[in-house]
Design a protein around this nucleic acid. Sequence first.
DNA 1: CCGATGATGAATTGGACC
DNA 2: GGTCCAATTCATCATCGG
Length: 593
Amino acid sequence: MADPFLTKDPSLEDIDDIDWTSEDEREIEDIPAVQAAAAKIEASSSSVDPCSKLIQHFVGMGFSRELVEKAIEQNGEDSESILETLLTLSVLETSPSEQPYSSCPQEEPCVNGYDSSSGYDENILDDFSDGGSWSDDDVENMVSLSPKERTLLSLTKMGYLAEEASMAMERCGPKATIEELTDFMCAAQMARSEATYWEEEDIKPKIKNLSGENGKQKRKMCAYDMYRKKKQKGIFNEDVETIRLPKPMVGFGVPTEICPEFQGRTLPEQAIGPPYFYYENVALAPKGVWDTISRFLYDVEPEFVDSKYFCAAARKRGYIHNLPVENRFPLLPIPPRTIHEALPLTKKWWPSWDTRTKLNCLQTAIGSARLSDRIRKAVEAYDGEPPLRVQKYVLDECRKWNLVWVGRNKVAPLEPDEVEMLLGFPKNHTRGGGISRTDRYKSLGNSFQVDTVAYHLSVLKDLFPNGMNVLSLFSGIGGAEVALHRLGIRLKTVVSVEKSEVNRNIVRSWWEQTNQTGTLIDFDDVQQLNGDRIEQLIDSVGGFDLVIGGSPCNNLAGSNRVSRDGLEGKESALFYDYIRILDLVKCIMSRYQ
DNA sequence: CCGATGATGAATTGGACC
DNA sequence: GGTCCAATTCATCATCGG
């Protein structure tokens, strides 16, 4: 057990001590704080006029107040056209010495002249370390600000958006240096930049001087150009860009349904491996979330699949991956796909007026005993069929809580082992090892549906006949590992990151029970996977073949009444660690070619 | 402290209809 | 277009008993 990776790096101690909770609360207030600070510096005004909010909005994005006012004057209050004008004006007017980055729409600052093959963290920083990017006037004003505000202001002055800078500070912790913060945002930008070359000759001379002096021929298109191109093509006009869910939700095809008219897909050049990657999250996320996820994952189109085509329970999920999609095959045996087949004992008690054949999504909590009892009493009050009103009440509750009929007039929630079976895990996968029943439901509810994921991963079997090295992020109870194992793919090395100790124990004991010939290395925290650590891992195992994971959906899921905050939510923001790590792996792997 | 329990809606989408 | 209705949803939190 002398595994070098299990020893804790002392330099990480500080990170563990951070109080994330209090930081999270503060973050919300920081954005207006920066906006106000920026406004204070750019000009003094009485913020009473109706445009002030609009002005602050754009000032917060890094545009000067003068420019914003000019743009509003020209366009009225239509923020879309204001933005366009601002982008045009800022490109035309910005002098390179003052603002090396130009501000871009949405949260996309541009990095010109950045080449992903030229290493990860050296070249950007040099442009700023001299501190000469802003005037003395501003520095004077900054004295009155808190250290955090000062950092944020510095970053926005560099051309980063307040939102992005704030997120970086959240992710990197309050002790992070400017260098670390720009590093983090650099990773994000790499994910977003596209491998498109200059095509529009007319812009070229105007933006050329923004690109720095290291004269790369191949140059990433900055977001401004993407914006212009899309606008020209007319794709960008409305919110046409928002991703829609397919109907039926079968992605690029499922084994059980006839899925006509699919002619393969072409991946964006940036997305092509190595490594292969596979990302998962809930399909029904708040508006715009999947657009953002897709944009960060090289603009790969999500594959939305409902697991009701694989098992007896629905599970609507989006998957973004760069795997081949031809010649997939399902796990055998094909699992039962109706409630009666999956839970034969319920058939005897199932009333004819309950027309369900599939269960709804298996979640993290189950229905209460009191509810089951209320339903029993409601149904018991009648001989034969209850009136329609009662039927509707009972059915609504049964659907909401996934209750099944287990006796005369008796409904009950699913047992943990039934959930395991429905999700494609071996029976008792989550049982024992000190985990409570409640936590079993929770861990299972947060997991993959194994058959669905395995179907997508099945193409790897022929590609890696000798086995694979897998980096599994947010592993949970090991859905990815179980899927690969059941496909008969040898797991050479699995590096697994999972915060929950009981989950890690579940995967560990599954690993030991399934006669694995490879090595399982697990980590507690994604923060431990920094560039050095990943490089070290890649060195020792010989590179990762697959980076797989589904980041937390807490703040995206519809069941969350309390904190459905979107991708920037406390847990769901860990998505940015997924892309950070994927980018690092991609970067390091490209050097090994 | 741990584990179980029950109360707590909104966001989003799609379809029917006007 | 708009408006209503129906269906669905990898959850969080305070509380209580052991």
